[in-house]
Amino acid sequence: MADKSVNLKVLAAHLGLTVSTVSRALNNYADISPATRERVKQAADQLGYRPNQNARRLSIGTPETICYLMPRQIGAIAQPFVAQLLAGLGEALNERNWDLLVSQADASVGDLASIERLVKSGRIAGLVISRPLKNDPRVKLMQSLGCPFVVHGRTQNSDDYAWYDVDGEDAFVTAVNHLARLGHRRIGFIGAPLQYQFAQERLDGYLRGLKHNGLVEDPDLVQIAEFNDDGGTAAASLLMDLDFPPTAMVCVTDMMALGALDALRTRDLVPGQDVSVIGYDGLHFGKHANPPLSTMAQPQAHAGRRLGDMLLSIIDGGDPTKFQELQRAHLVQRMTDGPVHQNAGQTEVSIREELQ
């Protein structure tokens, strides 16, 4: 445990150096020789000296804190999606002894004002924006304020700022292709509100997957709901109440997919046997669903780590447009995807007759 009685003055006296020299050595100033810097750091370790971070931050004029803008949802901080992202973000900051501030603000006029107050307060050095809208005013605000930021996701036009994203459109093409290879011809889509860019991209991927496999695009098979488990349950219930319900569903989040599984179980249907379900996120809790959830997985902890590293690089002077990274999701097969049910063939005949 560090000895709180060992302050900068005590350390300097022990070394026979001035307080200024010791301070500059600990902060890696170039005018202090490497030998002196090493000698000071060894003595600091031996005596258990720990710097006063607040005093250090005041001296260098940098808050050494970044803010994560949490998605505006009830209980968002407890969601596995957010928790895993924050874990990776914290890991990146810890290596620099920086702090993480978590705030909740969406793109409404009132929250834009609160973001502006936060930035102008001087409490943060940068900001992470999550789940952006198609045209997100937070991006333009941050650019006008000149505060470093990075976006987890993208807006419709994402050329002039830093972002990290996973290709949601490609992921849903992959999911639909997989289900089509299993014999499914009637595939439902459970989506989120389309003001979010990620929701639009995943819907676009679903539609592109249908076209690629020669499947009919049926508006009844597209259900948009709030992206939580209750929304997934409601959307799946509407799909299963159709005259010709789907034999498979793709869901824009794992949470919505869990809700879809619940809707199937209440109808005494076995997910993966009677109706296939594929989620998106690859969250750990999906392994423990009933049955374990098949999903398009994206690495949340890795995303948080990359967001942190990118933002710190921009704060250090990097060009934001040089930090734009697109990753791919991959299919994790568990037990909620399987071949089309044997009774679905008769349904297909009925659908064709209905369309004619």
Rank of each mutant, 00 (worst) to 15 (best):
Ser23Pro: 01
Tyr280Ser: 11
Gly308Cys: 07
Asp241Gln: 14
Asn54Trp: 00
Gly317His: 06
His152Asn: 14
Val173Lys: 14
Ile74Tyr: 12
Arg138Ile: 06
Leu269Thr: 05
His302Glu: 13
Leu239Asn: 05
Tyr29Met: 13
Arg305Ile: 00
Ile60Met: 11
Val128Ala: 01
Pro320Val: 09
Gln197Gly: 02
Gln273Asn: 10
Arg96Glu: 09
Ala87Tyr: 12
Arg96Asp: 08
His284Ser: 12
Cys251Gly: 03
Arg24His: 09
Thr321Gln: 13
Asn94Glu: 15
Asp159Lys: 08
Gly90Phe: 03
Tyr164Asn: 11
Val222Ile: 15
Pro80Gly: 09
Lys9Ile: 13
Ser294Lys: 10
Ile129Val: 15
Tyr280Met: 05
Cys67Ile: 04
Asn52Thr: 07
Gly110Pro: 00
Leu179Tyr: 02
Ala289Met: 05
Asn135Phe: 10
Leu312Cys: 09
Gly205Arg: 06
Ile66Asn: 07
Asp170Lys: 12
Leu331Cys: 09
Arg24Thr: 02
Thr253Gly: 07
Ile187Met: 03
Thr266Lys: 10
Tyr29Lys: 15
Asp45Gly: 11
Ser20Pro: 01
Thr36His: 03
Thr21Lys: 03
Met240Leu: 15
Asp31Pro: 05
Pro137Asn: 08
Leu8Gly: 09
Pro51Ser: 13
Val151Arg: 01
His178Met: 01
Gly259Met: 03
Ile60Lys: 12
Asp241Trp: 09
Thr62His: 13
Cys67Gly: 07
Leu331Trp: 13
Lys9Phe: 04
Ala263Glu: 03
Leu141Asp: 07
Glu217Gln: 14
